[in-house]
Each structure stands twice: as structure tokens, then as C-alpha cells.
């Protein structure tokens, strides 16, 4: 981080920290939580999609795994969700390696299609499974997470929305830190080489598969932790968490904001999530479908005018502004 970007970053964090103190309406706090959650998810996608250039269409698989693992551990084995979140992350990482091994043999659109197929397999299996062993998955009906008497971080249940807001804010800052650290590390350089030209990277001795796997496992871990957060926020999980539409939403947020940049996914979430949340609320009743038209129009505009993501013109504008100052 350069000296010039410390001040705006500090201002942004301070503004984010003050937001729930100023805005008291729980609906808007919920919308803000969703923005931060999607920023977190899109950043976790960005570790694979941005750093390594492997555009996964199956990130919701990890999100769903995180939600189901922590919930099942909580209900059947009384494992606190905070611990379940870590276990879910590890489970997702291990599964991601199983998925990555065959999928990384494919490139470009074939890789994307393979990841999409895996997610759909998860969705269909979970939808049609009522029970495994003694565990009730309840299939398409989904699982309600029981309220706990003690509100605590360990139980991941709080009395107000504000605590969830601060929790996801801290999680987002943590993942941005991890992303920046990976980007600046030796791994980041290897991943960038693989993204730029995989054949060239391999012919100078970089084991492309190994580094892509590492990026995938880290990406899956964080994707799964977002799943646990979401489950504990809504106290309800369903197979739709695995849906490919959801995967594509994550990918779009990252791409619209700017894949392969630190703040691109955050910017994408800041723009796209309110559009989909607010239009659904205000237009969803009488004008069902209108929100999708608006969403689509924004996507078309971004692809036409800022195909590298909105962060690119934003950065340019910021630099011009900084130069103009005496």
C-alpha cells in the first residue's frame, strides 16, 4: 500500500465502521451486510479467478458446503458454528482439490463448464437427499437452524443485525489482506505468470497445476466461510445455495468491479448488490422482472464502456484528481 492510498483506505474503513451507528433502519443494515458478504465472496472468487485467471462458474459449491457442514455439525454434534466455519472451510478445500484435479486438465470455456457441472451435481444431490446415515438433510425443504439461548461469537448468533455487520466487515478486511499478501508473494508472481501465458510459465519450470490448486484451495476455504456466515445470518439453509445462478452472480460482481484487482470485487458488490437488493424490494411486487432488466442493462453498459472492470476508470479518475491538487 502506497502512502497516497493509506488515507482513502482509512477513511473508507472509518466510514464503514460508522455506518450502522448512523443508519438505524435494520433493512438498510441488512442490505449493507449483503454488500459486504458479496464483496467477501467475490474476493474469495478473485483469488482463483483474478490471481490465477481461472474463471470458475462453480464458486457457490463451496459456499453451500460451508453452510451445510457448519449447520450439520452444529445440530447433530453441537459443534459451535465458529468452529464449524473453520471445519467447513477445510472440507471445501479438500473437495476443491478433488474437483480441481480433473477440471484443471481443461482450459478456458471447458474449465468454466466443468466447474458449472460440478456445482449442479452438488445442487441436485443435496436437493434429492433426505437423509444420510442419521443426518436429516431434508432435501429441497432446507434446514432451519435452531436459536440458541446464549448470544455469542462462538455460537455465531447475535441479538441485532449490527453485530453481523461488524463481523463481516472484519472478515472482508481479513480476506483483502490475504489477497494482497498472496498477490505480493512469490506465489502471486507464479500465478500471474500462469494467468498471462500458461505454456510459457510451464516451460520455465513452474508447475502450473500445483499453483492453480493452491489458489483453488484458498479460494474454496474462504468461499465456504462465507457460507457459514450466511447460514447463521438467516438461520436457514437450502439447496439453492449451490445454484449455478448464484455462482454466476459472484463471478459477475468480481468481473464488473475488476477481476484481478484488490478492490474490484468490493466495488462490484457495492454497485451490483444494492441494485439487485433494492430493485427487488421496491419493484419486486408489482413489476416483477424489472429488476433483472436494470441489472442486465448495467452489465451491458459495463462490458461496453469498462470491459476491464469499473475499477479501471475509477482509478484513472482518482489519479487525475490527485494530480490536480497542488
Amino acid at each position: 500500500m502506497t502512502a497516497g492510498s493509506v488515507l482513502p483506505a482509512a477513511c473508507a474503513v472509518a466510514a464503514a465502521a460508522l455506518f450502522p451507528l448512523v443508519v438505524r433502519d435494520p433493512y438498510f443494515v441488512h442490505a449493507a451486510i449483503m454488500v459486504l458478504l458479496f464483496a467477501y465472496l467475490a474476493t474469495s472468487w478473485n483469488i482463483l479467478g483474478g490471481l490465477a485467471g481461472q474463471h470458475s462458474f462453480g464458486h457457490s459449491a463451496f459456499f453451500g458446503i460451508g453452510a451445510y457442514v457448519s449447520t450439520i455439525l452444529f445440530i447433530y454434534y453441537h459443534v459451535p458454528p465458529l468452529v464449524g466455519m473453520a471445519v467447513g472451510g477445510v472440507v471445501a478445500s479438500v473437495i476443491s482439490i478433488g474437483i480441481g484435479y480433473p477440471c484443471f486438465k481443461l482450459k478456458g470455456p471447458y474449465f468454466a463448464l466443468a466447474t458449472l457441472a460440478f456445482t449442479e451435481i452438488f445442487r441436485i444431490v443435496v436437493t434429492s437427499t433426505e437423509q444420510i446415515g442419521g443426518i436429516d438433510l431434508k432435501g429441497a425443504a432446507g434446514i432451519l437452524i435452531p436459536l440458541q439461548p446464549g448470544k455469542s461469537l462462538l455460537n455465531f448468533q447475535f441479538s441485532g443485525k449490527t453485530s453481523y455487520y461488524y463481523l463481516i466487515l472484519v472478515m472482508l478486511l481479513a480476506i483483502l489482506f490475504v489477497y494482497r499478501w498472496m498477490e505480493r508473494s512469490r506465489w502471486g508472481l507464479y500465478l500471474a505468470a500462469i494467468r498471462d501465458n500458461e505454456d510459457a510459465a510451464r516451460s520455465i519450470g513452474i508447475s502450473a497445476t500445483r499453483y492453480k490448486m493452491i489458489a483453488l484451495a484458498v479460494s474454496a476455504f474462504f468461499g465456504a466461510t462465507a457460507g457459514t456466515f450466511y447460514a447463521q445470518l438467516l438461520l436457514y439453509i437450502e439447496p439453492a445455495l449451490f445454484s449455478s445462478a448464484f455462482s454466476i452472480e459472484i463471478l459477475l460482481i468480481a468481473v464488473v468491479g475488476g477481476a484481478g484487482t484488490l478492490l474490484g470485487p468490493f466495488l462490484g458488490a457495492l454497485i451490483l448488490t444494492p441494485i439487485s437488493e433494492l430493485t427487488r424490494t421496491y419493484l419486486g411486487g408489482g413489476y416483477a422482472g424489472v429488476q433483472l432488466i436494470i441489472y442486465g442493462a448495467v452489465l451491458v453498459a459495463v462490458m461496453m464502456f469498462a470491459p476491464q472492470g469499473l475499477i479501471v476508470p475509477l482509478k484513472r479518475g482518482w489519479r487525475l484528481l490527485a494530480e490536480r491538487r497542488p
Binding site: 508472481l189 501465458n197 520455465i204
Partner: peptide, 18 residues
């Protein structure tokens, strides 16, 4: 087939990988 978005120095350093 260079890595066009990287600096000359990074391109060279990547050559000494192992």
C-alpha cells in the same frame, strides 16, 4: 511469449524458478 503485464525484472526473476 513474455509475461507482458509484468516488469522486465519480474520476467527475468521468474526464469530462475527452482
Amino acid at each position: 511469449r513474455l509475461f507482458p503485464a509484468m516488469t522486465v525484472l519480474d520476467n527475468l526473476l521468474l526464469g530462475a524458478f527452482s
